[in-house]
């Protein structure tokens, strides 16, 4: 029943003999699926995509795209994939039309076919008017749509999207995802996408792989991932921390897990959140502790992410010194 178009076995990339950017990952992507790679900066998402789209040579392992080995036959792989990188790659000094025709020439598509296809694609992403202007006059959303059209000029079987909505406003992000969805339904295209936005991954991906420190921690449908986290989540903030707090909380029926976060919040995993919340307040009040804040949430992708990586994606992006250093190292190694 399943028909994997991407098959990855033990794929590994080590930069400079020391940085294990991707560490023996294996996964499969089915034909016609939108498959999301989720993870913090430096987790290995871009490196994984880089190996699949033949930009980086794997240190170890194999990857097949529609049965073709990316290391043994990269030029055949390049013909059947489309790549929309994280950066805006269109040449600013050329018009949208010139850019897309340039890419068509790189694929060796005959002029009569590429002209027709380019105008169709530009129409689809709503850039027909703007295509006569130089790209330097485009807005971020327009550039992203142009990149999308450029990535589709060869009618790829697999489309790689690296952070397609990064830095765009909410409306534009929704519009981009609508395009991606349309592609999936119209061309039965397989799409491998990385993103920072958990809610986008939740809403638009058929399956998600959570990747951290170069390893795939969990891969499943968004529903299963959320179900797997188990129960509701209660987050509380109390005036001061006591040794016995944990003990008291553990005694409450329905509490399955307690985690003290570094920022002074306590996260509890509970079976029936609505019933347990008053119990928590009562127990802590008895101990003369004041609950200053309590939130009850159904599991979202944020919780899923938190559970599997032990970190909050949003915090990760801005604070981690370590990630920054690693990214810098990898950027140098890659160049």
């Amino acid at each position: 029943m399943t028909d994997p178009i991407i098959k990855v076995v033990g794929l590994t990339k080590i930069f400079n003999h020391t940085v294990h950017a991707v560490d023996h990952i294996s996964f499969e992507v089915n034909r016609g699926e939108i498959f999301g790679l989720l993870g913090p900066n430096g987790a290995g998402k871009s490196t994984t995509i880089g190996m699949l789209n033949t930009l980086l040579k794997p240190t170890e392992g194999t990857a097949l795209i529609d049965g073709i080995d990316v290391t043994k036959n990269p030029s055949s792989v390049r013909k059947i994939i489309g790549v929309v990188p994280q950066e805006y790659t269109a040449d600013e000094d050329l018009t949208g039309w010139e850019n897309i025709m340039l890419i068509a020439d790189f694929y060796g598509i005959p002029r009569d076919i590429s002209r027709q296809r380019a105008s169709e694609l530009l129409e689809m992403v709503g850039l027909t008017e703007a295509s006569k202007r130089n790209v330097e006059t485009y807005s971020g959303g327009m550039r992203r749509r142009l990149e999308l059209a450029m990535g589709l000029i060869n009618k790829p079987r697999v489309l790689f999207l690296d952070e397609p909505t990064l830095g765009l406003d909410v409306q534009t992000r929704t519009a981009i995802w609508e395009h991606i969805r349309k592609l999936k339904s119209e061309y039965n295209m397989t799409i491998l996408v990385t993103t920072h936005y958990l809610e986008e991954a939740d809403e638009f991906c058929d399956r998600i792989a959570i990747i951290d420190k170069g390893k795939i921690i969990k891969a499943d449908t968004p529903e299963n991932l959320k179900r797997g986290v188990g129960g509701d989540i209660i987050t509380i903030q109390i005036t001061k921390d006591g040794k016995d707090v944990d003990l008291a909380l553990k005694g409450i029926q329905g509490v399955t897990e307690i985690k003290n976060n570094s920022d002074g919040f306590i996260t509890l995993k509970v079976v029936d959140g609505g019933a347990v919340a008053p119990e928590i307040i009562r127990a802590l009040t008895q101990m003369n502790l004041n609950v200053t804040r309590l939130t009850l949430t159904r599991p979202t992708m944020d919780e899923v992410y938190m559970t599997y990586t032990g970190r909050n994606l949003r915090e990760e992006q801005t604070t981690s010194e370590e990630t920054f250093t690693m990214r810098r190292t990898m950027r140098k190694a890659r160049s």
Binding site: L55, T89, F106, G108, M150
Partner: peptide
């Protein structure tokens, strides 16, 4: 742009 070129045939 160079990377983009390199992902094409």
């Amino acid at each position: 742009f160079l990377n983009k070129m390199l992902t094409t045939p």
